[in-house]
């Protein structure tokens, strides 16, 4: 039963990575940039949930909704203030700006919330289920996390394929200038992408801190990097790729912790990434479109 427990916990952690990876992969696919501040939006989201739920005693749902709304606004604000003026700048300038925004958010959180770790109260009170005569326990957080991730994935894939803004996203990710010629508002589409990614980051923050209940201003940075890894792993720019990359990363990490060494787990995760990229440089589901000119 040990293996099954590790696997399920891995799936749950992987689901959180997948939700975060969506933010990286969508922004990369559409704005062609790596938003390294994405991980820190998760941390802000978690603090918002903590403040409204534990601090002000609001119901869980209300507090998560507030967190989503604030993170969505924050993501759009970051895009408008920090990235939009650099639309025609080199990739390196945008990357450095993103790292700068990441430190800015961490330090702002440090200033507001202090450096003392906060013990986060889980947003899910359900105890979960016990199977196989008490040998296999699955916590409520684990189950809800996996289900939330799957719902988000299905909804997002439907959105991109079937709605007008979703179509616009696909067009912008394929060819920004041609999209403009079709009448698509490229700036608006990029802004929407940041909004969706950051809203999802708020959900990821609440779920992450419910499983690992220690919240500091640096809480978002390591999961952020791992989720970015997951996005590359699955094939950056691909929504199903983010799901597969995230889940695999979570499972590998948990199994490595259980059977090899908890200190080496991260090293193993990144070693697997390097091997995958050596074999398939575009990631598992990455596309290599051959264009005829």
């Amino acid at each position: 039963m040990g293996f099954l427990t590790y696997l399920i916990n891995g799936l749950s952690l992987g689901s959180v990575y997948a939700i975060i990876a969506l933010g990286y992969t969508m922004v990369y696919g559409i704005a062609k940039m790596l938003n390294f501040a994405h991980g820190d939006v998760i941390m802000i989201g978690a603090y918002l949930v903590f403040m409204t739920m534990t601090g002000s005693g609001m119901p869980v749902v209300v507090s998560i909704v507030i967190s989503i709304i604030c993170c969505t606004a924050l993501g759009m604000l970051i895009e408008k203030v920090a990235y939009k003026p650099l639309r025609k700048a080199t990739n390196l300038a945008v990357l450095i700006t993103a790292i700068g925004v990441s430190y800015f958010l961490q330090n702002m959180a440090l200033l507001i919330f202090g450096s003392n770790p906060i013990s986060f109260t889980s947003v899910i009170t359900w105890q979960g289920i016990t199977l196989a005569g008490g040998q296999l326990k699955i916590t409520g957080v684990t189950i809800i996390t996996i289900i939330t991730c799957l719902i988000i994935m299905v909804a997002l894939m439907w959105f991109v394929k079937n709605t007008k803004p979703g179509q616009a996203m696909r067009a912008v990710s394929e060819d920004r200038d041609a999209a403009t010629l079709m009448g698509i508002n490229v700036n608006g589409t990029i802004s929407l992408t940041f909004a969706i990614g950051s809203g999802l980051a708020a959900i990821a923050g609440a779920l992450l801190c419910s499983s690992y209940p220690v919240l500091t201003p640096y809480t978002g940075s390591m999961p952020g990097i791992k989720a970015f890894t997951a996005a590359v792993f699955g094939g950056i720019g691909s929504i199903p790729g983010a799901l597969i990359g995230g889940l695999l990363l979570g499972i590998i990490e948990n199994l490595a912790k259980a059977y090899i060494s908890s200190q080496l787990a991260d090293a193993i995760v990144f070693a697997v990434l390097i091997i995958v990229l050596l074999v398939k440089p575009t990631g598992i589901l990455g596309k290599q479109t051959k264009e005829k000119v």
Binding site: A171, M182, E291
Partner: peptide
Amino acid sequence: MAHVPEGRRVFPGLTVLENLKMGAYT
């Protein structure tokens, strides 16, 4: 006003039909 750009600039990862529908975006 529509503009057929230099180098065609079709959306390579979308199908022909999806490309055409994109033309009617507005």
